[in-house]
Design a protein around this nucleic acid. Structure first.
Length: 620
DNA sequence: GCAAGGTC
């Protein structure tokens, strides 16, 4: 029996070939430079296997010619316009290869990633293959990690493609196209005369991910803009005392009440303390404490760290990681998984790092007994392990070197032990008010030795004994002010998007880049930190939608969440694909009508929605 | 000239 296996991308095709063939396979080229076909016998099922792949989605969607041109129709018509599915030009060679291989095969086995998108890509593959072989038997290999045992199991016990998941994806594709195109054309056509200079291409784009992303940035911008500092008061208490190591040192005690915004109350409490200023130690607590080592590395975490620690934009980090992956230095960089498979081979990978001049010694230590199983996070995409180094890279430079170093140190840290310390808390009472001081001694740095990105500094405090009394050397009523919140950083934004389900691990960085390219957002450096600030146009769009009562729907994450929820319903077969599509489209149609009417007022009677009028530089 | 999702 001849079995044609098709994976989602070249790396998986190669991995499963190596596993299933035991390393004995022949390789042949195709007309696509990235795609190879692997052939071998698989006696376990009496078959000859050909393994190949696609490169993500095979097909694209667009309107037909009648609606494709911007002036061919009213933008509103796009909601009901038919959509064409076709194989993009750059995917033709892949399609051709599939057809040639399908003609020779009895069975088509789908090996795409085991997620919704993978199920849809599987269906795209099936459709192409059936064009040349209508009765080909279709199977789906289901695996949760690229590990020998699981891959063999998947090959020997295939299941069926999940049509409902593919349907959910198809509905989302059509929805996003229609909504994106309709709103983008409408916004551009109604507002462009009011916007001074437009970015390259002259488009005021709308997208169901772009706008909530911009919304986060504007929301924070408003908080910063509206911030008014508030004065507060607190009692500061300190005592000078001899420590074992540093000589005489002031130990500051924190007021249990934190701080107080009412000056009269603060003064009254302070006077009580002054009347009876002798302090008494009520409790001394000593306990061991630890700083947890980091979780296994996901794409989102890599992007956050890249931005925060390496000063690289999320998109840049992903590009660099992709390059390292192409060179074979790190594992697949797009993963949601923050837990390692129990059978994961840590020791081989750790051994490869022992030759490194900087962290080789640490890796050796792990080999010689310091190894500790990594922590387990809550996420598993069932396709890729956490990001880890796959080979030692000694000759990298610049950004590649820094990203590789981070990934490797993170991996070694995960395989190490938590840092251990000793924490002391001294509780005192003074004039009827409670205060406390804490001290920390770091006993074992463990993972911190190889992971300088985390800081945990010890602070030794002198000895205090329960019941002892002393006179504080400083007792003052001090004044402070609440501080202005910061603008959003890229790392903050990635976190917000991830939490709210805006975009995916592979697309979050792109969405941020898009709203920068569209001139909705400006990057501003303050020291080493990059902040994201909305442009006049960006604020105007979000405030404009807020002003006309569409804020919940357009600039906030709720609507994308509803789309997501409906997709899950389709997957669970509670709702059909068409029902989902129509529910969502009706919702957007309603908003479209309101938005178009109000946006037109910006141009004609500006005052009715002053915010858009002002920020879009309307002159009336 | 429009989207978001895969991927190289």
């Amino acid at each position: 029996m001849k079995v044609l296996c098709v994976a989602e991308k070249p790396s998986i095709a190669k991995s499963i070939s190596q596993i299933l063939s035991g390393g004995q396979f022949t390789t042949s080229n195709t007309n696509s430079p990235y795609i190879k076909n692997y052939e071998f016998d698989y006696p376990q099922t009496n078959s000859t296997f050909t393994v190949t792949c696609v490169s993500g989605h095979l097909t694209s969607q667009d309107f037909y010619e009648t609606h494709r041109k911007w002036n061919s129709c009213d933008a509103f018509e796009l909601f009901d316009a038919p959509v064409e599915t076709f194989i993009a030009k750059d995917k033709k060679a892949i399609e051709q290869n599939l057809k040639v291989q399908a003609r020779r095969a009895d069975v088509l086995m789908i090996w795409t990633d085991c997620d919704r998108e993978g199920e849809h890509i599987g269906l795209e593959i099936v459709r192409v293959c059936r064009e040349v072989k209508r009765n080909i038997i279709v199977k789906r290999a289901r695996f949760s990690a690229i590990i020998a045992q699981q891959i063999h199991r998947a090959a020997q016990h295939p299941v069926e493609l999940d049509r409902a998941q593919a349907d959910a994806v198809e509905a989302r594709m059509i929805l996003d196209l229609k909504v994106g195109a309709a709103f983008t054309r409408m916004q551009t056509q109604t507002l462009q005369s009011r916007v001074g200079q437009l970015a390259e291409g002259g488009v005021i784009s709308y997208g169901p991910c772009q706008f909530p992303t911009l919304g986060f940035i504007v929301q924070r911008y408003n908080r910063v803009k509206d911030f008014r500092p508030e004065t507060f008061w607190f009692i500061y208490l300190a005592v000078s005392r001899l420590t074992s190591s540093q000589g005489n040192e002031d130990t500051a005690f924190n007021w249990r009440r934190g701080h107080c915004f009412d000056v009269e109350v603060a003064v009254a409490l302070y006077e009580m303390v002054l009347e009876n200023p002798r302090a008494r130690v009520t409790k001394v607590t000593n306990k061991s404490t630890r700083k947890w080592k980091p979780l296994p590395l996901t794409t989102v975490e890599l992007q956050k760290a890249g931005s925060r620690l390496l000063g690289l934009a999320p998109k840049k980090v992903l590009d660099v990681a992709e390059k390292l992956y192409q060179q074979g230095f790190v594992s697949y960089p797009r993963t949601e998984t923050d837990q390692y498979d129990p059978q994961f081979d840590f020791m081989t990978l750790i051994h490869k790092q022992t030759v490194d001049p900087a962290w080789g010694g640490f890796a050796t230590g792990l080999e010689q007994g310091n190894f500790n199983t990594p922590r387990k996070g809550k996420n598993n995409d069932k396709a890729h392990p956490p990001i880890h180094p796959t080979a030692h890279a000694g000759n990298l430079a610049g950004e590649e070197k820094r990203v590789y170093e981070f990934i490797t140190r993170r991996f070694l840290a995960c395989c190490s032990k938590d840092a251990e310390g000793w924490q002391t808390t001294v509780d005192i009472v003074c004039g009827g008010e409670d205060f406390y001081a804490t001290g920390l001694v770091v006993l074992e740095k463990n993972y911190l030795e190889v992971y300088p990105y985390d800081k945990w500094t010890g602070h030794v405090i002198p000895e205090f004994a329960e019941g002892e009394e002393f006179d504080p050397s400083v007792c003052e009523l001090r004044e402070g002010q609440t501080s202005r919140p910061n603008y959003l950083t890229e790392a903050d934004l990635v976190t917000l998007m991830d939490k709210n389900g805006i975009g995916t691990d592979a697309t979050i960085a792109q969405h941020i880049q898009t709203i920068i390219d569209r001139d909705y957002v400006i990057e501003r450096m303050e020291g080493a930190t990059k902040y994201l600030i909305p442009s006049t146009l960006g604020v105007g769009l979000i405030e404009g939608y807020n002003q006309i009562g569409l804020d919940k729907s357009v600039s906030k994450p709720q609507l994308r969440r509803e789309t997501e929820r409906r997709m899950v319903q389709v997957c669970e077969r509670a709702v059909t694909k068409n029902d989902m599509l129509h529910q969502s489209i009706d919702q957007y149609k309603e908003m479209f009508i309101i938005a178009k009417r109000e946006f037109n007022k910006v141009v004609t009677v500006c005052n009715s929605i002053s915010v858009i009028g002002i920020v879009l530089n309307c002159t009336c």
